[in-house]
Design a binder for these strands. Structure first.
Lengths: 326, 326
DNA sequence: CTGAAAGCGCTAACAT
DNA sequence: ATGTTAGCGCTTTCAG
């Protein structure tokens, strides 16, 4: 058995199966009719030759793209340095494998959302996964991609979304803190423009308001570094703070770092919570809310890959994980 | 000015420039001849129409692929859950953007490396980035991809590599520990089969041997979870251990978690070091060795994207970062 | 220097 | 049910 120098084409398959190219194409596509006999012979030829369809050719004739675009909105290209984006890209790539599609990542400046159109004008783009979306951005998704776009976070009438129940997660966290006796609960938030982070903030506010407790917010940016500096800000403004809610695990870890460095005990003096349950959270015993991020992104990717008309919003639950830090 | 419903094709460009398609193609490719006049008119037509070449068509005619494959070897598909792989995929994707190529990820079972050929037989694969390679795997890279493949880690005669000076990094760490007075230094290693991890282990052994100190190794797997359990193993086997070298930051963080949970002070009782300098390392004040991972992966990707004949091995330095944990 | 023509591998009418 | 025929958008001989 000789390994052909040149990868098999549909023609080869058809020839060795003794059928026409169209027939071969039909059975491979599963569409149209084909006699069981033909079907079988093609099947055999296919894995005899190790035939793999050429996606470029397919894309050409269908006018369809060859890759999914993961577009992350942000203030600067540094958004792409976020491990969360890494994970999203890798997960989308994994989901794409069976479809023979690749993945691309691009950053979309918050200050110039129209840049998105430039990216989506590329005919090679078969679908779009939006990260850190804003409503403006959502409305910029071209009609060509309606049905092949999905947003992780908020959605719109034309772009369905897959999302985490941030509000619910934050509610559980704050309730947990409250029932543990904490009454002076501060929060290190995310950037203002991010809708999903905003939901957490609003949940925090509502709960504290309902309980008649004071709101104590410091604006952060999801990063550990910012958490580190924010912790001190919080304690300077409200020295009697007994709990700090981080908008993310990274933020919380930064907060804890600063606190411990300042000789403040966690959780004895100040309880600290995170959000996301990154792998490290377990190792450092961080109390947080856990989300099946990979599963969420997979779901999103699959949605566009299978061109499934999706419900406007799919919400994944957020689960409180109580560990030592709060 | 009407925005065309259908993205412009080369034909459109040629027509509005008043030249033939071939001429347009030539000036776009920069290849062949074309009169300055023609050149200019095509240029104008191109950005009047916002023309973007269709990569699928290009790929079809060139027989070239449309994406880079990131292949990670490992014992199970769980290798793809590694944040390091995420980062690699995302970084390669970023590097691909200007070339209009996408990225795919796949896992290659260590127990069935020949599975790689299956993946590389796909004509859509324009290039290959190997992660966690073994020599066997390297030799399985098909001739078609010679020159379009690169390995992060060890290389071979046919596949150049981009690598971190793990040995050097570990040496600096152990020396640092030694000069801080530590004499009973244990190591939580990586899996045996991984060549790059092995270099760290060998450096550790050589140094300790030369100093007449005892070797204390526990096999780990890069994960924080494993670090967590490994820490206890170390202290049970060698209770007087005064330093633990982690093969990775995650490992080290797990180790620290366990130690602290057991009331052992870090670094007072036991110093702990990591490897990699992940973002969190700074926040938790972990002493570690830092590597420009993104830069390394970019370099590798660029190498295959530009089809540059590369030196057999490009080594990136490892830098000791002293923080509080050791 | 430029245009005409022949595909790259595949799909989708349109016959048969 | 199956084969024939046109292309998808682009590059590249090969003649002018």
């Amino acid at each position: 058995m000789t390994t052909p120098r040149r990868p098999a084409t549909l023609d080869d398959v058809a020839r060795t199966a003794g059928v026409s190219r169209s027939t071969a194409s039909r059975v491979l596509a599963g569409t149209g009719f084909a006699s069981p006999a033909a079907r079988e012979r093609v099947r055999i030829a296919v894995d005899l030759l190790g035939y793999v369809p050429n996606p470029a050719a397919r894309a050409l004739v269908h006018g369809t793209g060859v890759r999914l675009l993961v577009a992350a909105a942000g203030t600067g290209p540094a958004v792409l340095d976020d491990p969360y984006v890494d994970q999203a890209v890798a997960t989308v790539a994994r989901a794409c494998a069976p479809y023979g599609l690749g993945v691309a990542v691009q950053w979309v400046p918050l200050s110039a959302p129209e840049r998105l159109t430039q990216l989506t004008d590329d005919r090679a783009v078969a679908g779009l996964v939006l990260l850190n979306t804003t409503t403006t951005l959502l409305d910029l998704v071209p009609r060509r991609l309606h049905g092949q776009a999905v947003s992780i976070g908020i959605g719109s009438a034309t772009v369905p979304s897959v999302d985490i129940d941030n509000g619910g997660g934050t509610t559980s966290i704050v309730r947990h803190l409250y029932s543990a006796g904490r009454r002076r609960i501060a929060m290190v938030t995310g950037p203002r423009w991010l809708a999903c982070a905003d939901r957490s903030v609003r949940a925090y506010r509502r709960l504290l308001h309902d309980a008649g407790l004071p709101i104590r917010e410091v604006v952060g940016d999801f990063s550990a570094t910012r958490g580190y500096t924010a912790a001190r800000q919080v304690l300077r403004r409200w020295p009697d703070t007994d709990a700090i809610v981080g908008i993310s695990d990274a933020t919380a870890l930064g907060v804890i770092g600063r606190l411990r460095a300042d000789g403040i005990r966690v959780p004895d003096d100040v309880a600290v919570t995170g959000f996301d349950d990154i792998p490290l959270a377990a190792s450092v015993a961080l109390t947080t809310a856990s989300h099946p991020v990979r599963q969420i992104i997979s779901a999103a990717a699959t949605m566009v890959l299978e061109r499934r008309r999706a419900p406007e919003t799919t919400v994944f639950p957020s689960t409180l994980v109580v560990r030592a830090s709060a």
